[in-house]
Design a protein around this nucleic acid. Structure first.
Lengths: 196, 196
DNA sequence: ATATAAATACCGACCAGTTGGTATCTTTTG
DNA sequence: CAAAAGATACCAACTGGTCGGTATTTATAT
């Protein structure tokens, strides 16, 4: 079958509409009705494709995590040494461009995962996966004597903190600075330190 | 009068109850009814003290920002040089202890500020105030040749990113590591860099 | 000090609107 | 035709917020 079954297409339409709504109003404030209206579909269609609003959250999150996986794997394939991988990931201009509008919703999901066990399981699973990637990267650097003998767990979490922290700030104060520039310069500061 | 007027006490009771609820269920999921029940008061009392749920958000946020102000000012008064101030702020064991339960709610407010103009104004105002503090600190360090000639705006935002990022991770994965240890080690890594 | 007046603090039933979700029916598709 | 997809009408639960009335303080006058 050349054309995706109409069902899948409709489902995607709903997913995209949901993303629009979530970006605009937030997770909680976006009602199922609103999402349907945005998608130009009916509530019946919605509940034909998703068993609940939650269910849509989960599918959306899984979809995005797959995208992030893609970015990371690409960065890994395109680079030969550990330092290159790190820089390629953290530059992440692509992420900020493609996923820019997704990021606030992603944070929203993150917060929600704090209180929702289903979401939490998925989120924490991926979180730990990425954590491990950075940890291994640091460990490798330590073995090759490129990196100081710092705790690799701490370092990995620090790297993630920077990423998440920038997203949060970018959401609150998008015009406060040139965020892509900040994001570009920060990995270097992180690597080389602040002190002379 | 030794004892606070009863009115203020009741208002505080509501504020505290709200904090409990928000910590447990999140901002949106905590209904006014729930807050009142937790406080052991009536809805009438609530709307006697606050003009709306929003209004309570604002008061709560202002209250907390005042606390943070206190921490920062204390750190400034207790230290003589720029580096000490920075370390005193970022150690912030006191913040993590006292305000531990508040932090998730704080993040929740942050997200909400993204879409709510009133909240945004307050939040962004404080954000920029703290940003400036760090910026000035970095500038001072640069003048004294302690700090590299990095962009002070970027550096300041990087520092904030680390703080916010740790809070976010701590919320998602509280038992994943010893966060106070991570928080203690990170400033040093930030200062001295990762690379050898 | 006591009576009175006036705020302040508080209660809880109630309302209009919205929410996620369901049940039933119709259309499209293979 | 049967199954999938979609539409419409509907509902029970819950939401933030209102309102008329009552209890409790606090200020004032005597």
């Amino acid at each position: 079958m050349v054309i995706k079954e109409k069902g899948k297409r409709s489902k995607n339409k709903l997913l995209e509409a949901a993303e629009k709504c979530f970006t605009k109003y937030g997770l909680d404030a976006s009602g199922v009705d609103e999402i349907c209206k945005t998608a130009g579909m009916s509530k019946g269609a919605f509940y034909h494709h998703f068993s609940s609003k939650q269910d849509l959250f989960l599918e959306m999150l899984n979809q995005w995590l797959a995208i992030i996986d893609g970015y990371i794997n690409t960065a890994r394939e395109d680079s030969s040494n550990m330092l290159e991988i790190f820089m390629n990931i953290s530059k992440a201009k692509q992420i900020f461009k493609d996923a820019g509008s997704k990021l606030p919703v992603f944070i929203d999901l993150w917060i929600r995962a704090t209180r929702d066990d289903n979401l939490r399981k998925i989120t924490i699973g991926s979180y730990q996966k990425y954590l491990k990637i950075f940890k291994d990267l640091v460990e490798e650097g330590k073995k090759k004597k490129i990196i100081k003998s710092i705790n690799s767990d701490t370092a990995a979490r620090l790297i993630i903190a920077v990423a998440v922290g920038f997203i949060m700030q970018g959401m609150l104060d998008p015009d406060g600075t040139e965020w892509d520039k900040v994001a570009k310069d920060s990995p270097m500061i992180l690597l080389e330190g602040i002190l002379r």
